[in-house]
Amino acid sequence: EKTLKIVADSEEEAEALAKELAEKYNLEVTIERNPEEEGKYVITIKIKP
Rank of each mutant, 00 (worst) to 15 (best):
E1P: 08
E1M: 06
E1L: 05
K2T: 14
K2F: 02
K2R: 10
K2W: 01
K2G: 11
K2C: 09
T3Q: 08
T3Y: 12
T3G: 06
L4D: 03
L4Q: 05
L4P: 03
L4R: 07
L4W: 10
K5Y: 13
K5S: 10
K5Q: 13
I6A: 02
I6Q: 02
V7G: 10
V7D: 10
V7K: 13
V7R: 10
V7T: 12
V7S: 12
V7F: 15
A8P: 00
A8M: 15
D9R: 07
D9E: 10
D9Y: 13
D9L: 06
D9M: 07
D9P: 03
S10V: 01
E11Q: 13
E11H: 11
E11L: 15
E11P: 08
E12W: 11
E12Y: 07
E13Y: 06
E13A: 10
E13C: 12
A14S: 02
A14W: 02
A14V: 02
A14C: 03
A14R: 00
E15C: 11
A16E: 09
A16Q: 09
L17E: 01
L17G: 01
L17F: 09
A18M: 05
A18H: 02
A18G: 04
A18D: 00
K19A: 09
K19D: 02
K19P: 00
K19I: 06
K19T: 07
K19H: 07
E20A: 14
E20S: 11
E20Y: 15
E20F: 15
L21A: 02
L21T: 01
A22V: 13
A22R: 15
E23T: 07
E23L: 10
E23W: 06
E23R: 14
E23K: 12
E23H: 07
E23C: 13
K24P: 01
K24A: 09
K24C: 12
K24V: 04
K24L: 08
Y25H: 08
Y25S: 03
Y25T: 04
N26F: 08
N26E: 05
N26P: 03
N26H: 11
L27I: 11
L27P: 01
L27R: 04
L27V: 12
L27D: 03
L27M: 14
E28Y: 05
V29I: 07
T30S: 12
T30Q: 08
T30L: 07
T30R: 07
T30H: 09
T30Y: 09
I31P: 00
I31L: 04
I31M: 04
I31T: 02
I31F: 06
E32P: 00
E32Q: 10
E32H: 09
E32W: 03
E32K: 06
R33F: 08
R33V: 10
R33Q: 14
N34C: 15
N34A: 12
N34R: 07
P35T: 10
P35W: 10
P35S: 11
P35I: 10
E36N: 15
E36Q: 12
E36V: 11
E36T: 15
E36S: 12
E37T: 10
E37L: 14
E37Q: 12
E38Q: 06
E38Y: 08
E38L: 05
E38D: 11
G39V: 02
G39F: 05
G39E: 05
G39H: 06
K40F: 04
K40W: 06
Y41V: 06
Y41K: 02
Y41G: 01
Y41R: 02
Y41H: 04
Y41M: 04
Y41N: 02
Y41Q: 02
V42P: 01
V42L: 11
V42F: 07
V42M: 07
V42I: 14
V42W: 12
I43C: 03
I43L: 10
I43D: 00
I43V: 13
I43Y: 01
T44S: 07
T44F: 05
T44Y: 08
I45N: 00
I45P: 01
I45W: 01
K46A: 08
K46F: 10
I47E: 06
I47H: 05
I47C: 11
I47M: 12
K48Q: 11
K48G: 14
K48H: 13
P49Y: 09
P49A: 14
P49V: 15
P49R: 10
P49K: 09
